[in-house]
Simulated scan of single mutants.
Amino acid sequence: MIYAPNSAADRQLLNHSRALVRRAMALLRKSDHLVRAQRLRDELEEEQRKTGRRPDAAADPDQSRCAKASQAVTAIHRATAA
């Protein structure tokens, strides 16, 4: 397909693109609390993998920092879904 300049169509496309970017940025700003909790959980899991530590199966899962972070992520998802 050969491009033929069309200033009206180009202007409309540019405006639509800017609107999409504004909406996407607003969504990102509103989802920061979810991303932060997930990032914390991922960092804790990575730390456990690097140190070779595994939570004891018989231990209370609430004692694990990773379990607490996962519970926090779940609670946030439930609160925002309601």
Rank of each mutant, 00 (worst) to 15 (best):
I2K: 07
A82E: 10
D56T: 09
K30C: 00
R22H: 05
R54Y: 15
R22N: 12
H33Q: 11
M25D: 14
E45R: 14
S31P: 13
R22K: 15
Q48N: 10
R41I: 00
M1Q: 04
R22W: 11
D60V: 12
L14I: 11
Q63T: 09
R53P: 03
A69R: 00
I2C: 04
M1N: 04
A79M: 01
V21W: 15
L28M: 04
S70L: 07
A81Q: 08
H16R: 09
Q12K: 04
A79V: 01
R22T: 10
R18H: 12
Q38D: 06
E43D: 10
L44A: 00
L34D: 15
H16V: 10
T74C: 09
D62S: 14
R39L: 10
V21A: 15
A57K: 10
Q48H: 12
L34H: 08
P5H: 10
E46G: 02
E45Y: 13
L13C: 06
N15I: 11
R39W: 13
A67P: 00
T80G: 02
S31I: 11
V73E: 08
R54V: 07
L44F: 06
A58R: 09
C66E: 05
A19M: 10
L44K: 00
K30S: 03
D60Y: 12
R78F: 03
M1H: 03
L14A: 11
R78P: 01
R54S: 09
H16W: 13
R39V: 10
G52M: 00
E46F: 04
N15R: 14
L27M: 15
L28W: 05
A19N: 10
R78Y: 05
A59S: 10
H77W: 03
A58E: 07
H16C: 06
A81Y: 14
G52C: 00
A37I: 13
V35M: 01
A57F: 13
R18Y: 12
T80I: 09
Q63C: 14
G52Y: 00
A9V: 11
A72M: 08
L27I: 06
A82Q: 02
A4Y: 13
Q48I: 05
Q38I: 08
A69S: 02
Q12F: 02
L44W: 05
S70N: 15
R36S: 02
L20W: 08
A37F: 09
E47A: 06
R36L: 00
K30W: 02
A67N: 02
S7M: 14
E45F: 12
T80V: 11
A69V: 07
T74G: 04
R78M: 08
T74V: 11
N6T: 04
K68S: 13
T51V: 14
A69E: 04
V73H: 05
L14P: 01
K68I: 02
Q38T: 06
L20K: 10
V35N: 03
A58H: 12
A59D: 08
L14N: 06
A75K: 07
C66Q: 14
D56A: 14
H77R: 04
A75N: 13
